[in-house]
Design a protein around this nucleic acid. Structure first.
Length: 406
DNA sequence: TCTGGGGTCCTTTGCCCA
DNA sequence: TCTGTGGGCAAAGGACCC
């Protein structure tokens, strides 16, 4: 195989129908039922569906209304992100027992570099089997795994192994596996690039191979070069163990479009609190905030601003987001979704000590700390907001505005 | 395909400044 | 002082991933 200098033993582990599997494990009465995890019946989509729902043609991303039309008996459960994050930590603790070179890719999947474990644990395939067994026995959850000489091929292998399977792509099997695949299977090829390739008469990897490196670079720039290599099964990316989060966000699609600016401001407050709580719990602070507004016609707009200093205070985040909201059409056009994302994350220890501490701000900080502990202990969603509403005159106006409006 | 919620990364554009 | 250029940066949008 080409580029043997990049050759490693990589395992890609991927939980099967993760959200749905966690729900079925936590609620055994649903273990044999088609389970749909996702948004509301009217406007949501399916985030994850159990394997019992798949024969109905249901897949993630499908509108919930359509999924229910296909399978009216399905159990619909709302997303419990905190719960999945908790189980995810348990899964990653198992990964860590098998390799110290683990790269989280999302909440339910990771790359493990086990090149150095051969003498201790055996070849990749054996390690992958052991990981799957541990996850199944300790957590009662299904997991698929792919083993190959690099990240790209390992990920393709785990996808092919699903559900609840294990597949290794050996060095001699790469072309047989790769050439018949559709180009969309290549990492980085989505709807847009696939369409551009189709215009060139290319739908399969075998056809993609006929383009030269410079042809692909002219057409797609840097992504073209990556395409050239991946089409040949070449991927020299290392497993990166020290990846830190770049942003933390929360967004919400409303049951019906919101019109009044005051109700939008109130929603921003709840979102600001959610993201602020999460950055604080991770010992982080943010350099800036992005506001996302999706209108009733699905057109989307973002506005962003950097803070004067690193922030983790919900009220500062909320005030900035509210400011940004004023530069959008919100209040004049119906709004379907609002999102608040914190960017430029850094350890909160790097926050500048204030030269002239503001006593109000200091008091708020102490209160927030106490409330974070309460939230952690009781998982109380409403605690923080109720207190904030009672404490600040400006916030109270929002509350009154909402009560008075609509 | 009647369109969620969590992200990452890249490109373009405009602005400031040397 | 005018014009041009290019770097650095922030903001906005878009493609893509699960």
């Amino acid at each position: 195989m080409a580029h043997s200098q990049c050759e490693r033993t990589i395992i890609h582990c991927d939980m099967d129908a993760f959200f749905a599997a966690v729900e079925q494990r936590d609620r055994p009465e649903y273990s044999d039922r088609p389970v749909l995890v996702g948004g509301s019946r009217e406007r949501g989509v399916v985030c994850a569906c159990s394997y019992q729902a798949r024969p109905f043609g249901i897949h993630s991303g499908m509108a919930m209304s359509k999924a229910l039309a296909r399978c009216p008996d399905a159990v619909v459960l709302s997303v419990r992100m905190e719960r999945y994050r908790e189980v995810s930590r348990q899964v990653f603790a198992i990964f860590a027992d098998f390799s110290d070179r683990v790269e989280p890719l999302s909440i339910d999947e990771a790359f493990l570099d086990v090149s150095g474990c051969r003498r201790l644990l055996g070849p990749g395939r054996v390690v992958a089997a052991a990981i799957r067994q541990r996850v199944r026995e300790n957590l009662g959850l299904p997991i698929s795994a792919g083993v190959a000489g690099n990240k790209f091929l390992a990920k393709l292998a785990s996808a092919a192994a699903k559900p609840d399977g294990l597949l290794e792509i050996g060095a001699g099997e790469v072309d047989a596996f790769l050439l018949p695949l559709e180009v969309e299977k290549i990492w980085g090829v989505g709807r847009v690039m696939a369409e551009q390739l189709r215009e060139l008469g290319i739908t399969r990897v075998a056809e993609l191979r006929r383009l030269t490196r410079s042809q692909l670079e002219r057409k797609f720039g840097g992504s073209g070069l990556r395409l050239y290599e991946l089409a040949r099964g070449i991927d020299c990316r290392e497993v990166e163990t020290a990846r830190e989060a770049r942003s933390i966000g929360a967004e919400e699609t409303f049951a019906r479009d919101l019109e009044g600016i005051e109700s939008l401001r109130l929603q921003l407050l709840a979102l600001s609190e959610r993201v602020a709580h999460r950055v604080r719990r991770q010992g982080l602070a943010a350099a800036g905030v992005i506001l996302k507004v999706k209108y009733g016609d699905f057109s989307t707009m973002t506005r962003s601003r950097r803070f004067a200093e690193l922030e983790q205070d919900a009220e500062v985040i909320w005030r900035t987001a509210t400011d940004l909201l004023a530069s959008t059409d919100a209040g004049r056009r119906p709004v379907r979704l609002l999102g608040v994302t914190l960017t430029g994350l850094a350890e909160s220890a790097k926050m500048q000590p204030e030269l002239f501490p503001d006593p109000r701000r200091e008091r708020r900080r102490r209160l927030t700390g106490a409330l974070d502990e309460l939230c952690d202990r009781y998982g109380a969603d409403g605690v923080l907001r109720a207190v904030l509403l009672d404490r600040e005159g400006s916030v109270q106006r929002v509350k009154k505005g909402k009560d008075g409006g609509e």
